[in-house]
Structure formats: structure tokens, C-alpha cells
Design a protein around this nucleic acid. Sequence first.
DNA 1: TTGAAAGCGCTAACAC
DNA 2: GTGTTAGCGCTTTCAA
Lengths: 337, 337
Amino acid sequence: MRVRLKDIANATGFSTNTVSLALRKSPLVAEDTRDAILKAAADLKYRPNEIAKSLVSRETHSIGLVLTNIINPILTQTARLVENALTARGYTTVFATSSNSIELEKKVIEAFCARQVDGILIYPTDHHQIAHVSALADYNIPVVVLAARPPENINAVSLDERLGAYRATRHLIELGHRRIGLVEGISNADNLEKTQGYELALSESGIQSQPGDIVKLEGFSTPFGYEGMNILMQQPDPPTAVFCVTDPLAIGVMEWCREHDLNVPGDISIIGFDNIEFAAYASTPLTTVAYDAHRLAYDAVDRLISIIKSGGTPPAPVHEIIEPEVLVRKSTGKPRT
Amino acid sequence: MRVRLKDIANATGFSTNTVSLALRKSPLVAEDTRDAILKAAADLKYRPNEIAKSLVSRETHSIGLVLTNIINPILTQTARLVENALTARGYTTVFATSSNSIELEKKVIEAFCARQVDGILIYPTDHHQIAHVSALADYNIPVVVLAARPPENINAVSLDERLGAYRATRHLIELGHRRIGLVEGISNADNLEKTQGYELALSESGIQSQPGDIVKLEGFSTPFGYEGMNILMQQPDPPTAVFCVTDPLAIGVMEWCREHDLNVPGDISIIGFDNIEFAAYASTPLTTVAYDAHRLAYDAVDRLISIIKSGGTPPAPVHEIIEPEVLVRKSTGKPRT
DNA sequence: TTGAAAGCGCTAACAC
DNA sequence: GTGTTAGCGCTTTCAA
């Protein structure tokens, strides 16, 4: 059925070894025999079996990419950029989502190891429960984490989410807002970077945040944003501005405003996070926290590959942190006086 | 370094074969020995090498997913749904994009075959140049195409794009429009389904389409839509409605209208295709062509897996076609009289 | 310049 | 119940 080296060997009368060498263009084999072998290979439509190669070379030229879920467009974009970067370097991308479950995340990592991926790129479900990720580094499996401030022993290329949140909140404060809501996602994990940035900006300005001003939803997509805004606005004296930890959340918030005839930014200011493509085209163009996602993906891939290539002696772990900036569009403005 | 069956064998005093059987919970091996082996495996932190397994079982439990590019959110969604469906069935997803290049597409397929994927799911760059895809079927490599009306010998689960375009155009005609623009993407490929549907609807209603009413761009993303609208509106007597072959294109068109103070749908009606998540949240909620993407992905995966499972005698090829519907929101209306 | 033999980590066929 | 042998398709010694 499938043609193997042996079939070419039989067809040409050479040994499998010679065939193997010829196909890899070894200078050891005579030109005539090489040509004959190449021709036979082409005739038989030979395709090398990478699995067999991998077994002996102990490398699969594949890397595992683990993301929490791919609903958030920014993770989609990351997936795309990573795949591009990897392809450009001759690696294939094996893809999996953890669906924000630590258990699943562990399983996925297991599966990748079993499949002998050459390395793993991961955006962990919970930025603080990553013992299982550190373990990879201990086992000498190259890994780069896409989250900020991980343990010292692992490599990371990531966005400074805390700083982004801080800047978003400061932007609102500088516009004059004093009551600023926070719309957060998933509460089972413990990624407090954004919340911390938000709180830091507030306390720095001597603003006391109201208990009802922080809403935590079960996810990061648009409908959750809508729901979050609904909760936020139940208060007798609601905020005049809202910081949403993702753009889809912000778009949901904006949708709520549209349905309830609240003008953005006249009645309420909204700022998102990630600068997804659609942010610019929302009903009110969305002010958001932007950063160089391309660089993030490419640097992470470069880092991973340099670890892989380094062989037995991996370079000292590096934490590269990318700084986000506030990108002002139309959804934020001064509060009504 | 890595622990193998042999290491467990040495540790326990049994043969590798017994260890192998024990780990696979064969009833042949005695309970005591099995427990001892399981314990040793756990102690040594044994992880099976799937690559080695694959070499003997001749299956990798991985399938290759080839998409044109992942910028279009609908392909993203497909990727996500496919990955979910595949994971649920115990397969891993190996991912690649063809970037709308036939050459790259061929290479990617080659690479997948070399990696011994158990099957391939592909949304081909050009729905008519798919000899290389048919070839897979000939080689007994299970493949399911995500495009409509492929050659008889290959399996397909897909959307009826022609029908979708037809219905979109009819929707505009029924509202009273007679000058309907078409904003199309990529011209190097030859996916005319949507154009055909558009033309069919027009000719059926006795409408003669103007030469300037069809614009073909180099891509399917939002900026191209903006550019397309710019071209379309140069005409002295521009269309009163526009059908865009993807939602991002439609959003770009809408953006052009926003910048040029054209009211949607008052001055111009816009309809998209795919019903991406953000369609509902655009500056004017977008009327679009919607379909069951979940079913598309799951049926395609089911089909592929049933072919894989069928072993040597694949079932007769099936072409499953999913019908799209027009989802009316706010971006289409009667033309000004 | 080419071939024979061993082995990557695992499973399968057949003994005992 | 358990061990031995062979083999998946390839590369890598080591000889010739």
C-alpha cells in the first residue's frame, strides 16, 4: 500500500540504507545511483514517514499550543499568529483548548507530551496554578508561557495585563470619572492582574471603590458583558464609566447601553481590552487597551525554538513583558457634570 | 531520561511485554503483577510514547485541518468547532492555513500525509482546483471537503453558498431594490458560487446588472469592504443596496457609510454572509446570511471519523449540503423612493 | 561507495 | 500468566 524505503530498495536493487542516504542527498552516494533512486522514488510516489523518523530522531517538529478557549478573538489572533510563526520555522502546530479547566489543561499537556511535541506554548487557565507547567520545564520539555509573572524557572513572553488595566483605569480617572465599574470574567480562576491594575489606579487617586462596582461573570464573551452591565446599573447611583477586561465584554456593555438609550460616551464611558479588529467598528468605536500581538506571538515562538535548539543546556529563563497602551476612540469622554 | 516500558520491566523484573499488557489492563495478566507494574509506572512517572505506538498501529489519532486563512471569523469558528468535535472523539487537531495559495495548500497536505494524520478536513482555496484533494481519496487517505459541489468521488459537508447568495439577493430585490452591488473577495481563486447565486437572483427578476456593480477585492476582511464601497460609490448612479460575501466585508462597507454620512438602511441597504458574532453589534445591526456552523463542523467530523473507522472499505461518498437562511436585522430596508 | 546489523519504543504472534 | 521473537519505517553505527 504505502511505499517505503524498502520498496525503493527492491525496485532499484540497492539497500535501504543507500536509498535513505540518497534521498537525503548524502554526498557519499554516487551520482548515478542517487539519480536512479530519486527517479524510482518519484515513480513510486514515495512519501517519507515522519512518524518513523521521529522515533529515531526523537523530534517531531511539532509544537503544542494550549489556549483557554478560542472564543475570544484575541486568542484566535494569537493562534493564527503562532501558527504562522511556527510554519515559517518549519514546525507544525498541534492545537488544543483547555476550556478554562485546570483538569483539562493538565490532560492536554499530558497528551502533547505523549505525542512527543518538541515544545509547548501555553496561555494557562489560571496564572497562578501552574505547577503542572513548571513541571514541564523540570522534565526538560521546552515551554513558554504566555502569561505575565510566572515562576522564575519558566520562560514567559506576555502582555503586562496589570499595567494595561492600570492605564485603562487611569484614562477614565483623568477624564474626570470617579465612579468606575469593572466588568470581569470567570471567577474560578485567579487571574487578578487586571483587577489589581484597576484597584491600584483607583487607590492611587484616593478613590474608594464601591462594593457593587465590580462584577464577575462566568465568561468573557459579549452576552456576559450585557449581563454584567445589567447588574452594574441596578445600583441606585451607578458608575459613570466602565472598564471591561475584554473587548467582547465591552461590546456587550455597549449593546446594553444601546438598548437602554444610554449615550456612549455622553451618559457612560466604556473602555475595553485587546483591541480586537471589530472594536473600531462597534456602534460607538471602542476605546481600548492595545498592544503588539504580532510581536507577542513571534517572540514567544522564537523563544521556544531557541530553547529547543539549545539542546541539553537550556538558556536561563527570560520573562519578556510587552507594554500595552490605551488606544482612544469614541467610547470614552468626560462625565456629565 | 525518558522512562520506557523497558525501565518498568527492569524495575519490576517482568518482561516488557507483560508490562505493556498490564498497562493496557489486559485481563491476561495476574492482578498482583498488574498492580506492581502500575505502581512502578506511577513511581517512575511513565508516559507512553504515542509516536512509537503510532508506528505499529499505523494510526496517529490526529487529523489535519486545512483552512484558507483564519482571519475570517467564520473560519475561526469552524476551527474551534472542529477542534471541539475532534477532541470529544479522542483525536487531536493539527492545524495549518493555506493562505489562499494552491501551492501552499499542496505542501500542507503533503506535510500532513508525511505526519501520517488519520484524515484531513479541508476548506480548499479554490473550489474547482482540487485534483490534489481528490488524489488523497485515491490514496485511501480519508478526506472531507468543506466546500459544496466537489467531484463525485470525495466526501463533502458544506454550506450551499450559492443558495445563500441567491437568498440574500432575493431579500434585497423583494424589498424593492433594483440596483444591487456585489462586494466579492480574492480574485485569483475561482469560487464563483456566491457570484452565481447573486446573478441568478437578478436575472430571475429580469434585472440587468450594471458592469460597475461587481467589485472584487484582494481579501475578505473589513478594510477591503471599505475599499470596495469606495469603488462602488464612485459611479454616477450608485446601487441602493450591497451584498457582501462575508460579514467583515459588510462591516467595512458600513464603516464607509458611517464616515460618509450615509444612513443604513435609509440611504443604503447592506447584507453580509456568515453571521459572525459581531454582526449583531455593528453600528447598524447587520442583516446577514446565517447557518448552523455547529452542525457543519460536527457533521464533517463525524463523516471523517466514520470513513476512518470503516477501514479498507470506505462508504460511498456523500455530499451533505447545509441550507443557509437570511437573518434580518436592521441594515436592510426599502430603497428611498 | 555500498551493505548488514542494530535499535528508536512499542505491540503482536507464538511459545511455554 | 508470562517471556521470546519479530517487526512497524526509518537512521545510524560499523564493515567491506
